[in-house]
Write a protein that binds this DNA or RNA. Structure first.
Lengths: 203, 203
DNA sequence: CCTGACTGTGAACGTCGTTCAAAATAATTC
DNA sequence: GAATTATTTTGAACGACGTTCACAGTCAGG
C-alpha cells in the first residue's frame, strides 16, 4: 500500500528526471512545462502539485548537479599532508571541475546563468549547497598556507575557485573560438600551479 | 530633406537607446518589444523594419557595451616599457574591468549570458569585436614576457583575462554572498600580481 | 454506500516575440 | 500635378509560453 504522499514524491522525482534530461539535451530554454507533463504522463496543471513553479524545478535540478559535482571533486582530491600534495590536489580538483563542466555543459551552466523570477528570493538550502563546493579547495589550502587566518583562506579559496571557473567558463563558451580540451587543461594546470607557487613562497 | 533611409537609421538608434536603457534598468528579461515600440513612438510591427529580431537588438546593445568597455580599458592602460610598468598596467586594466562590470552590471552580463535563438549563428562582426578586448592584455604581456611566442602570449592573455573575469563574475553574483568592492579589488590585484610575478620569474 | 476532503484535468488567461494583409505614405512616371 | 507603383506603417492575429482555476474524478473514514 502506497500513500498518496509517497506517490507524489515518486512523481516529483520523475519530473526532476525529465527536467534534467531536457536541460542536458536542449539547454535551459528547452525546458517546457507541457513537454514535461507529457513525458511523465500527467496533465499540465498537475505539475504545480509537485513543484511551486519552474524556478523551483530548475533549482532542484541544480541541486542534483551540485551533488554530482561534489562527488566528482571528492573522487579527484585525496587527503593531503604536504605542501606538494596540496598543490597536486588543487590541480586535480581544478581539472576535475573542468572535466565535469565539459561533460555536463548545459546542466553546469544552469548553476550560474539561471536567474530567479522578478523579486523571488533563492531559498536557503540552495545557497548553502553552493558553499560546499569550496570545501574541496579550502582543505588543501589549509596545508598549503597553514599560517594564514581562516578568513584569509576563505577569500583565497573563493578567488582561486573563481579564477579557475572563469577559465573554464570562457574556454567552453562557443561564442568565442572554442579551446581544444588539452589546451584548456594545460592553461588551468598552469594557472593553479602558478598560484600555489606564489602562495607557498611566503609573501 | 531627409531620405527615408536616414530616418530609419535614426530611429534604429533610438531603438537601441531604448533597449540599452531597458536592459540597464531591468535586465535582459526586462526587454519587451511592446515597451520599446511605445517608447520610441512607433507601432509594434515597425520594430522589425529596424531590426531583424530581438537577438539582433541585443547584439547591437552588446556592441555598444563592448565599445564603452574598450574605451574604459584604454583610459586605464598607459603605454608600458618596463616589466614593472607592465605589471602595473595589467593590474590597472583588471581593476578597470572590475569597475566597469560593477558600474554596468546588467549590460555587462548580457555580453556573456545572452544565448542566440535555436540554431541562429552569431554574426562575424559580433565575434571579432570580442577579440579587441584582449588587446589591452596582450600589449603589456608583450613587455612582461617578450621571449615567449606570440601564440603562447595569446593563450596566456586569454587565461589571464578569463581568470580575472571569473573573479569579477562570481564576486558580483548576488546568488552567493556579495563581496564588498574593496575586498573584490584586493583579490583581483593579488591575483594579477601573483600571475605577473610568476610569469616574469622565467619558468 | 455516503460524504467530505483531497487530486488530477485541460480549457482559459495574460504575456511574449513574430507575422501579415491591409491601409497609409512616399517615390516615380507621364 | 495627376496617376501609378513601390515602400513603409499599422495593429490585429498567431502560436507558444508559464500559470491558474472551476470542475470532475478519486479516495479515505463513518
Amino acid at each position: 500500500m502506497t500513500t498518496t504522499a509517497a506517490r507524489r514524491d515518486r512523481q516529483r522525482d520523475l519530473l526532476i528526471d525529465a527536467a534534467e534530461r531536457a536541460i542536458a539535451g536542449k539547454g535551459l530554454a528547452g525546458l517546457k512545462a507541457r513537454e514535461l507533463a507529457q513525458e511523465i504522463g500527467c496533465s499540465l496543471g498537475a505539475i504545480y502539485n509537485l513543484v511551486a513553479d519552474m524556478d523551483e524545478l530548475v533549482l532542484r535540478v541544480g541541486s542534483r548537479t551540485l551533488a554530482r559535482l561534489d562527488a566528482a571533486l571528492n573522487a579527484a582530491s585525496p587527503p593531503v599532508s604536504s605542501q606538494e600534495q596540496a598543490t597536486e590536489a588543487l590541480v586535480a580538483v581544478a581539472l576535475a571541475y573542468s572535466a565535469f563542466a565539459r561533460d555536463n555543459l548545459q546542466l553546469w551552466r544552469v548553476l550560474f546563468e539561471h536567474r530567479m523570477a522578478e523579486g523571488a528570493v533563492v531559498p536557503d538550502w540552495a545557497v548553502s549547497e553552493q558553499m560546499t563546493m569550496f570545501r574541496h579547495i579550502l582543505q588543501p589550502l589549509g596545508t598549503l598556507v597553514p599560517d594564514r587566518s581562516a578568513e584569509d583562506r576563505n577569500l583565497l579559496g573563493r578567488t582561486l575557485f573563481s579564477a579557475v571557473h572563469g577559465v573554464v567558463a570562457i574556454g567552453l563558451e562557443e561564442k568565442l573560438i572554442a579551446v581544444p580540451r588539452p589546451e584548456l587543461d594545460r592553461q588551468i594546470e598552469g594557472l593553479v600551479r602558478l598560484a600555489c607557487r606564489g602562495l607557498s613562497a611566503a609573501n
